[in-house]
Design a protein around this nucleic acid. Structure first.
Lengths: 199, 199
DNA sequence: CTTTGAATTAACCAACTGGTTAATTTATGA
DNA sequence: TCATAAATTAACCAGTTGGTTAATTCAAAG
């Protein structure tokens, strides 16, 4: 046999993702990942030579998932309103599938910002130039310095924060889990409308 | 001597805060906290019987700091526009002082949402009723279900997220640390203006 | 069938970590 | 000054954790 078994490796990665997402690098235990993957702990080091390397794989994958679709949207051919709508829709649905993803990235990047530069070259990062230009064309207000940056920050913040802060926000708003999920679903339309009104 | 020495205890708490904020409960090391506080590791267990208890103290303090001023503002006597302005100003400056505070709370609450209920009774949580009523009075739009909740979520998100996601956002916006700090300072006015425009 | 390398396991290990203990020093009030 | 309790330390301990190793099973090619 020449090639490594992919199914076991994939199972490890899937399980490791959920564990790392929830507990972070320092809180995750190799033993738990092995147990959940249904394998011996030594197998982890057979497929991934160290916890650090397993984590790196998971983290880069997570970063790709988080940033991946965004670039395509923002660099796409669509007109500005459609782009905004697409971004909000994409981010909302992606975070609905994996709510812990955002908190994971925020937490790990806070401790080790250099993980961003390590394997992620600038070229793979999102290029905002098109988006900035479209904003400037739509309204002269966005020709002012940092105006486009604020708009982008607003767009991301409005989509991501309520997912990040679910435990706190749902409590403050006195909504149970089902109500909050509904609230998050409503937001896609709400955010789009708010942002388009700013053009 | 009847009373415990407060200065050592306070020094421990100050140091423990910075370490827990940065590394979280599982990533923090009692030895490191002791070293930074300039004391023996056994002294930590003299003032705080366990890591868990030291962490709880830090966490409750952090939660109080994060939510503390907000309640006063939202339950205050000011008119709605002034309240909004006060909230944005307070949150912005508080997070400028301790940027890691928000990520710390988000991360720990994600793993253990029950920490919110443990020692924090509902009474100490913020009461949104006044704020909701003021919104409804300002614009009939906010009488619709969840409209006030969305407004509140927007307000918090716009203030907090850019601090939470600094490593990621500053990179995407291609701003160095000084530029990003300036960007965050600008946001207070920007956010207030945006929110007031929604009334 | 047998050879060969991948897949897998049980047992083990050294370093780390939170926590304890017994002894010592320091401050204080009577 | 002396007794007493607080403050502090060094040494130690047991459980955990990431990681290794040597041996075994499994699957496929010849």
């Amino acid at each position: 046999m020449k090639t490594l078994d992919a199914s076991t490796r994939d199972r490890i990665l899937a399980v490791a993702s959920t564990v790392f997402y929830q507990k972070g690098l320092s809180g995750a235990r190799m033993q738990e990942i092995a147990d959940l993957a249904g394998i011996n702990k030594a197998m982890l080091h057979y497929y991934f030579k160290s916890k650090e390397q397993l984590f790196d794989t998971v983290f880069q994958q997570a970063l790709g998932q988080f940033l991946g679709g965004i670039g395509q949207v923002l660099n796409g051919e669509a007109a500005l309103p459609a782009k905004i709508e697409q971004y909000v829709a994409y981010t909302t649905s992606a975070l609905a599938e994996t709510p812990s993803l955002a908190a994971f990235i925020v937490h790990e990047l806070q401790q080790h910002p250099e993980r961003l530069s390590n394997q992620f070259s600038d070229s793979r990062l999102i290029n905002l130039d098109d988006f900035r230009q479209q904003l400037a064309d739509a309204n002269t207000r966005y020709q002012e310095p940092n105006a486009a940056e604020h708009f982008f920050a607003n767009m991301v913040a409005l989509c991501v924060y309520p997912v990040l802060a679910q435990p706190l926000l749902s409590r403050l708003l006195r909504q149970n889990e089902a109500q909050y999920r509904r609230f998050l679903r409503e937001r896609a339309a709400h955010i789009t409308q708010l942002l388009l009104g700013q053009l």
